[in-house]
């Protein structure tokens, strides 16, 4: 989320004075609210035991690993999203997930990456992996307000940003676009 100042600065630069005159307060208030939430005190586990959290975080870290190509699910704080979501949005899935989690070795987090990957490969088709994959992706890429995607790390990994307003060119291929030239009529064009 952009800060209030950052947002106003960007929007102003984009020449959106008329729009801002009517909507800046509402948008900025929403952005500030979201920002305050994500600045809340250091989180603590609410719906997972430390052991459960350790296992889930280890799985998440194999789904989107850290490496030479940059940080992954662990650094993005995906586990904090998952912990919170299992008490809120996905509270209904908590009991089954924690039951299924017991099918992984209690010391899963202490295994090396090769062993962990072999274990995950063996459960990839099952519901536990599907659920953990789903929650990992959500924790990586949902708004930081929900506890994951720390410092927008998930968004940055993907090359996504949310700055509320853009101006063309948007990408490489529309940079030197010469403008639309109507084609010759289609042969046998109908209606």
């Amino acid at each position: 989320m952009p800060t209030r100042r950052g947002f106003l600065g960007h929007a102003g630069a984009a020449g959106l004075a008329a729009w801002l005159a009517t909507h800046a307060d509402a948008i900025a208030a929403a952005a500030d609210h979201a920002h305050a939430q994500s600045r809340a005190a250091a989180p603590r586990l609410e719906n997972l035991s430390p052991a459960q959290a350790r296992t889930i975080e280890a799985v998440a870290a194999r789904i989107v690993p850290s490496g030479d190509d940059g940080p992954g699910a662990r650094e993005a704080g995906v586990i904090w999203f998952i912990d919170r979501a299992l008490g809120t949005l996905f509270a209904g899935a908590r009991a089954t997930l924690l039951h299924d989690l017991e099918s992984l070795p209690a010391d899963f987090a202490d295994h090396d990456a090769v062993a962990q990957d072999a274990q995950l490969a063996s459960i990839e088709a099952g519901p536990l992996f599907g659920q953990l994959h789903f929650l990992t992706v959500l924790g990586l890429l949902s708004s930081p307000d929900y506890g994951g995607n720390r410092d927008q790390l998930g968004w940055r990994l993907m090359g996504f940003e949310d700055t509320h307003a853009y101006e063309p060119p948007f990408g490489h291929y529309d940079r030197d676009y010469p403008g639309f030239a109507p084609p010759a009529p289609a042969a046998g064009s109908r209606s």
Partner: peptide
């Protein structure tokens, strides 16, 4: 792939 280094590479292709 749905996970691992290959999945992460694929995520990076988003833009």
């Amino acid at each position: 792939p749905r996970w691992g280094a290959g999945y992460k590479r694929w995520l990076r292709s988003f833009p």
